Amino acid sequence: MADIPMPLPGFTAWPSFPFEGDFKIKHLDPPVETEPARKGEDSADCTACTAPDDAYIWVNERWRVRTMDRPTGLPMVLMLEPRSHLDLGDLPNLLAAELGVMTVRLERAIRSLDNVARVHVYRWGDGAAHLHVWFMARPVGQLQLRGTFLPLWDDILPPIPEDQWRESLAHVAAWLAEFGGTPLAQPPRIDWQAPAKLTDS
Rank of each mutant, 00 (worst) to 15 (best):
P15C: 10
P187L: 07
D53R: 01
P5H: 04
H171E: 07
P159E: 09
A96N: 06
I110K: 13
V140Y: 11
Q186H: 12
M79C: 07
Q164L: 08
D69E: 09
L131Y: 06
P71H: 01
G180S: 06
A196K: 15
P15W: 00
I160E: 03
G21H: 06
C46A: 12
M1H: 12
A37Q: 11
G73V: 08
G147P: 02
R70E: 08
E178F: 00
P151S: 07
L169S: 07
D90E: 15
L74F: 11
G127L: 07
P158I: 05
M1V: 11
D126I: 02
R146S: 14
C46K: 09
I57K: 13
L28Y: 10
A117E: 15
R189G: 10
G10R: 15
P31Y: 03
L145T: 11
E35K: 11
I57Y: 11
F23S: 07
V32K: 15
A44G: 06
H120P: 00
A44F: 09
S16E: 12
D200G: 14
L157Y: 03
L198M: 15
I190E: 15
L131M: 14
W58F: 05
R70Y: 11
P30E: 10
D155H: 13
P71C: 08
Y122C: 04
R70P: 02
D22E: 14
A185P: 09
C49L: 05
D154Q: 12
A51C: 04
A117Q: 13
V140W: 04
Q142M: 14
P195V: 14
A51Q: 05
T12W: 14
E61N: 09
R105H: 06
S201D: 14
T148Q: 15
G180F: 09
A2P: 15
M68F: 13
T67K: 10
A173S: 04
A97Y: 02
P188K: 10
E61Y: 03
N60R: 08
A44H: 13
T148F: 13
E20N: 14
W175A: 08
R83V: 07
D200V: 13
L184W: 11
A128N: 10
A185G: 07
G40V: 01
L184C: 08
H132C: 01
P36R: 03
D155V: 08
L113H: 04
L95R: 01
S43H: 09
P159V: 03
G40W: 04
R166P: 01
P183S: 00
D53E: 05
A129K: 14
H27T: 14
L150N: 01
R83C: 05
G141K: 11
A96Q: 10
A177F: 06
R166W: 08
S84L: 05
P183G: 04
R123N: 13
T34N: 12
L176H: 03
V32I: 10
P183A: 04
Q164P: 01
G127S: 12
R108A: 12
P158G: 06
N115F: 04
V172M: 07
P15S: 09
T47S: 12
R118D: 14
Q186D: 09
K197W: 12
G125R: 01
P161A: 11
D87M: 10
A96E: 06
S201T: 12
